[in-house]
Simulated scan of single mutants.
Amino acid sequence: MQNLKIMKLSVLDQSPVRKGCTAEQAVQETVELAKYTDELGYHRFWVSEHHNTSSLAGSTPEVLIAHLAGQTKQIRLGSGGVMMPNHSTLKVAENFRMLEAIFPGRIDLGMGRAPGTDRLTASVLNPSNQFSEQDFLEQMIDLQHYFHDTAQHGTIQAKIKAIPQVKTVPEMWLLSSSGQSGLFAAHFGMGFSFAHFINPIGGPQSVKMYRERFKPSQDLTSPEANVALFVFCSDDEEKIFQHQAVMDHRFIQFEKGGGLSPLGYDDVKDATYTITEQERIKYNRQRVITGTPDIIKDKLSRLANEYDVNELIAVTIAENFEDRLRSYKFLSDSFLIKN
Rank of each mutant, 00 (worst) to 15 (best):
192 F>N: 07
289 I>K: 06
30 T>N: 09
183 L>R: 11
149 D>I: 12
5 K>L: 09
73 K>T: 06
297 K>H: 09
327 S>W: 08
70 G>N: 07
292 T>D: 03
159 K>C: 13
338 K>M: 04
92 V>L: 03
277 E>H: 01
238 E>V: 09
68 L>S: 02
29 E>F: 03
134 Q>E: 15
199 N>I: 08
169 V>T: 15
134 Q>T: 11
70 G>F: 08
242 Q>R: 06
149 D>P: 02
201 I>C: 10
36 Y>H: 09
244 Q>G: 00
191 G>K: 15
124 V>A: 13
78 G>A: 07
60 T>Y: 00
125 L>H: 14
180 Q>M: 13
206 S>N: 13
339 N>F: 13
292 T>H: 08
264 G>K: 05
97 R>W: 02
331 L>S: 11
274 T>I: 05
75 I>Q: 08
82 V>C: 13
244 Q>C: 00
319 E>I: 00
182 G>F: 04
193 S>R: 02
158 A>C: 08
254 F>E: 07
309 V>M: 03
306 E>Q: 14
11 V>D: 06
323 D>E: 14
188 F>M: 14
174 L>H: 12
25 Q>C: 03
194 F>Q: 13
150 T>K: 15
249 H>R: 03
338 K>C: 05
80 G>V: 12
137 L>D: 14
327 S>T: 04
166 V>F: 12
265 Y>Q: 10
29 E>Q: 11
109 L>F: 09
196 H>Y: 05
82 V>N: 11
293 P>V: 02
112 G>I: 08
109 L>D: 14
246 V>G: 00
195 A>V: 11
77 L>W: 05
122 A>P: 07
279 E>K: 14
243 H>N: 02
317 I>M: 06
283 Y>K: 07
314 A>H: 01
61 P>F: 05
10 S>E: 09
11 V>Y: 03
72 T>E: 03
279 E>L: 06
229 L>Y: 00
208 K>A: 13
214 F>H: 08
232 F>A: 01
280 R>Y: 05
115 P>L: 06
132 S>T: 05
21 C>D: 10
75 I>Y: 10
7 M>A: 13
14 Q>R: 11
335 F>Q: 14
268 V>E: 00
125 L>S: 13
334 S>P: 02
169 V>D: 13
275 I>K: 11
104 P>M: 14
146 Y>C: 11
203 G>Q: 04
90 L>K: 06
79 S>Y: 04
276 T>G: 10
233 C>Q: 00
140 M>V: 08
295 I>F: 11
77 L>D: 01
243 H>M: 00
136 F>T: 03
334 S>F: 06
67 H>E: 07
59 S>C: 10
209 M>E: 12
257 G>T: 07
302 R>T: 15
167 K>F: 10
24 E>D: 09
246 V>F: 05
275 I>M: 01
93 A>C: 02
